[in-house]
Nucleic acid binder design. Structure first.
Lengths: 222, 222
DNA sequence: CCACTAATCAATAGATCTATTGAATGCAAG
DNA sequence: CTTGCATTCAATAGATCTATTGATTAGTGG
């Protein structure tokens, strides 16, 4: 094999990973998988795709080395092949956010809270939790919370936030998080809480980043 | 705009960046651009593509926010939009290398030197250069060397290595680098040097990573 | 103005990708 | 062995991507 052939083959392999990242539906699947392992039909439901279509997307992700399947009885569970994939995804987001004009426009239009206040850093949150200074809300759906969450966080899905309001100590700051840096749930939660006059902020990024930073987590199964 | 519409639009934008990374030729263009700013026809020549085709690929990269054009007279020079892009590319490579079986196979087949000896870390190299313990070889083509290189490195393109051999102090270790972690030139150089009985190693990664780590560089224009 | 160069634009054939449909596989329970 | 379920496979139409060709737009110099 010649040197230039090798180079071409190698870039072709790298491109396979790029291609896998080149589709909105697959990126959404990856975001869900970053929360926890999932079966094919769970993924299909949550992403709003047909079963066969979801399966095919997952095959592509598998060939690109981004996910790993695990068979258990009738079901097949997929998970990210490693935390490197989370890093890669966040990198993609960062580049897009900084250099694609349309992303900034979108974010500024929809996430009006966006630049209102800097999100709370993971490390900082960790300290405040230890000192009992904050209430941490996990605003993801219960299944995702159950599969793993920030240690000490309370699960309050967005739809239950209203009902939960009076249980919150109004003197404490509330910190909300969800799936990742662009997950809408936490933004919405913070907006709602502030409207009610509470002190609320977002945590930076989301659960996957917290976990892959090696910070303390809990899950309902354990 | 609804929340799920927003999410979909956002993922579509992220996917645009992914798509841009999903083609071997574009990845090759990006690797060249990581060395230095380049005009369209330089890129076309070095990548072995037609001019029109190169131009179109560059437009796609521009729309994905990965490169920025600068017009000067007749020519248009492209460059990476930021060092974040280098990080993203290396991330892509890392994931591919760790999780795509074919990549490992390719690398092991062609880069036989690969696991022979760990590459020298940037930081370590920096110290040894300061102490005058090593000869650093930049085995890239002269244009790339001229546009910027590791401070103190000597430019010896692979084709000139043979002729350069007797100028090297045989008691010193030789460290070679080129375009990045998978650039073949440095592997070949090290193999040739060892065959002649010299002590030779690769530097980790290549020039772009050295530069974006903020380590000392030189260029011929300055 | 004309000739020349660098790059982009426009049109297009062939390849690849996407979502859908329906059939096939593999496993578990009765 | 049969039934039911989760997933994958196979075929396919329509959309998108890629490389090529030739025309077009800018900028430069005579």
């Amino acid at each position: 094999m010649s040197s230039s052939e090798f180079k071409h083959d190698l870039f072709t392999q790298f491109a396979r990973v790029g291609k896998a990242l080149g589709n909105a539906n697959r990126l959404e699947l990856l975001e869900f998988l970053a929360q926890s392992e999932r079966s094919v039909d769970q993924l299909a439901k949550v992403a709003g795709l047909s079963l066969a279509n979801t399966s095919q997307h997952l095959q592509q992700l598998r060939q690109a080395g981004l996910v790993i399947p695990r068979k258990e009885g009738l079901k097949v569970f997929y998970r990210l092949s490693s935390d490197e994939v989370i890093t890669l995804l966040n990198n993609l987001r960062t580049v897009a956010e900084h250099h694609v004009a349309d992303v900034e426009k979108l974010v500024n239009t929809y996430l009006t809270v966006k630049d209102d206040l800097e999100p709370l850093l993971r490390q900082e949150l960790l300290e405040r939790v230890r000192d009992g200074l904050v209430t941490v809300l996990d605003v993801r759906p219960p299944e995702e919370y159950a599969a793993g969450h920030v240690a000490g966080a309370v699960n309050v899905p967005l739809s239950h936030l209203e009902a939960y309001l009076d249980k919150i100590n109004p003197d404490q700051e509330v910190v909300a998080y969800c799936r990742g840096p662009h997950c809408v749930l936490a933004f919405d939660a913070v907006a709602q809480l502030r409207k009610k006059g509470m002190k609320a902020r977002r945590m930076e990024d989301g659960y996957p980043e917290w976990k892959s930073a090696g910070l303390p987590v809990e899950s309902d199964s354990s």
